[in-house]
Nucleic acid binder design. Structure first.
Lengths: 334, 334
DNA sequence: ATGCGGTTTGACAGCGCTGTCAGGCACTGC
DNA sequence: GCAGTGCCTGACAGCGCTGTCAAACCGCAT
């Protein structure tokens, strides 16, 4: 038979309620009492019954991570981070893929809330930007934390300074002597696309270079869109000597298109991406890119959420560091 | 206030217990009664309280998916499939990354059982092959289903006929006129590696070709190991005209190494992989490979598990179809 | 010694559901 | 007409924990 809280209480010579207090780290338990109880718990290898706690306390000890994102590497990283945080606090995590575009999107989240009653949500892009959902969650009083949201105001979670990362990336190209630097924009629905474009423009401006719309192509984060954009860029009379793609997949596409045009990377053209996904190390030349601490972002976002569940009132939007990964796809201008 | 089972009972004019019976699809409820209750449930939008059910019935309505696998695409697919099945049956899913090699591997699973009390597990390779864990689960009476296990006996879940898939792949190369066909083996810890090798050998034998150990290189499913294997192969005096790599990442490595050796794919050498991961469409030439129905495999494995939880006794190891995806990386021998 | 405010502890009910078991009902065969 | 047999339904307790509230206790001032 399982060890129950009552058994621990008996062994420690206190009331069940006191054990409960210790279990929940409540205040107003004298230190000797707390220690007695903790000792008994440890000795008996006591594990609280999640469902019983949940039923009695009207909390689920459950965090739901929502996503609608084709990039599984990014997602598994974030998932793992959220799980780390949940484990630390004895919460459970459930994951839920969704289609933001689906007409019943919000209803599906509602059904999830009704069925599983998560204590809170961790949102990942692009769900972080769904105004109807956000309003709905606020209205229903379900707390949530966001990973890399565009709107930081009144949100908690984790993010990196994307414009600055993009500036550093372009700065790296500038420092190599490049002056004609192209940019391939990401998917328009993702806030990151706008940020990275902004960083690109700022870096050019800071270097006193003009912004040339002919060097900026639209993409959608896919390999194919990188190929298409690069074909156009490499066909220009005055072609760029460097291309900054808003993510790694598109950068890989740019490298492929360079080969098609007889251009060697990085000899004839430098290429860089963003995200440091595995593909950046799987292609040749390996890709200069920006590393995001995705797992840590998931973890921190979840920790902020859990803090807000405890009502500490210290929750915030935490900025995390990124890192420029210089690899083989960028070189000084010929 | 939430609608409770008791409220439904009142509205339907029956006892709570009868509503409970209808909720759980129990037998021995007269049809008119059942309909009355279902109507009341629907009218009131009743959602049972998971924790209360779980506490009272001593079941968690939770399935845990365990994995230790670097391939996030494969995993997210399987996860989604398992989730599909769980949703269909109003179960929850939790995911848990683990390190099979870690000394406390089994203890971690134990802790998971103690804490979350899942009703069952879905195992993915290579966890499907961990004899100590399997024995432990059986001993503790925790049911599990496996995706692509090596040992089919006394297990339930889903799989594809891997040797046959490998045979078809090699058969495709043979039909293109290739006779010197090399193979890059996968990670030795994965059962799939052995199966794919076996299929390769069978196909050669069926075609009356000798098995040449010089054409079989060891890899570990990584891009880099594909590069290394291909370098050796392409340096042979009598180099192969086709390379069958045991997964897509290694095939991509082979293609890269071909470029390094001045060989064009598929003109000078045909290359094919296995798994149909996104990389197979992201590289050039796009990769001929085998598509596994990963999502469906996750779903079916979970359904088998759920069936066994209901004690139907019809659970089995279900074989699913694979599909040869012919793309641009294979062509008739020159 | 007594009273006071604050801290620490415990008694008790009940969260929403299901297991158990007993009772009611309808139909059968004699 | 009555016991016997299944089928269907309900009463009740209780799953393991926590919220509420009251009681006990403590230290200190009077």
């Amino acid at each position: 038979m399982r060890v129950r809280l009552e058994d621990v209480a008996k062994a420690a010579g206190v009331s069940p309620k006191t054990v409960s207090r210790v279990l929940n780290n409540e205040e107003n338990v004298r230190e000797p009492t707390r220690e007695k109880v903790l000792a008994a718990m440890a000795a008996m290898d006591y594990r609280p019954h999640l469902s019983a706690r949940s039923l009695a306390s009207n909390r689920s000890y459950l965090v739901a991570a929502l996503y609608d994102n084709p990039s599984s590497n990014y997602l598994t990283e974030i998932q793992t981070g959220v799980l780390d945080a949940c484990d630390e606090h004895h919460y459970s995590m459930m994951v839920r893929p969704l289609l933001v575009e689906a007409p019943d999107f919000v209803q599906r989240v509602d059904a999830l809330i009704a069925h599983h009653r998560p204590d809170g949500f961790v949102l990942t892009p692009p769900i972080t930007e769904h105004p109807v959902l956000l309003a709905h969650l606020r209205e229903r009083g379900v707390p949530f934390a966001s990973v890399s949201p565009v709107q930081h105001a009144s949100a908690i979670g984790a993010f990196i300074d994307e414009p600055r990362a993009a500036r550093e990336m372009v700065g790296h190209l500038l420092s190599l002597g490049h002056r004609r630097i192209a940019h391939v924009i990401g998917h328009p629905a993702h806030g990151a696309s706008g940020w990275r474009l902004a960083g690109y423009r700022e870096a050019l401006a800071a270097a006193g270079l003009p912004y040339d719309p002919a060097l900026v192509m639209e993409g959608d984060f896919s390999f194919g869109s990188g190929v298409a954009a690069a074909r156009a860029l490499f066909s220009l009379a005055d072609r760029p000597t460097a291309v900054f793609a808003a993510n790694d997949d598109m950068a890989a596409g740019v490298i492929w298109a360079a080969g098609e045009h007889g251009l060697a990377v990085p000899r004839d053209v430098s290429v860089c991406g963003f995200d440091d996904t595995p593909i950046s190390r799987q292609i040749w030349p390996t890709l200069t890119t920006i590393r995001q601490p995705s797992r840590e972002m998931g973890r921190i976002a979840a920790l902020q959420l859990l803090a807000s569940l405890r009502g500490r009132g210290e929750e915030q939007m935490v900025q995390l560091p990124f890192a420029l990964q210089v690899r083989e796809s960028t070189a000084p201008v010929a």
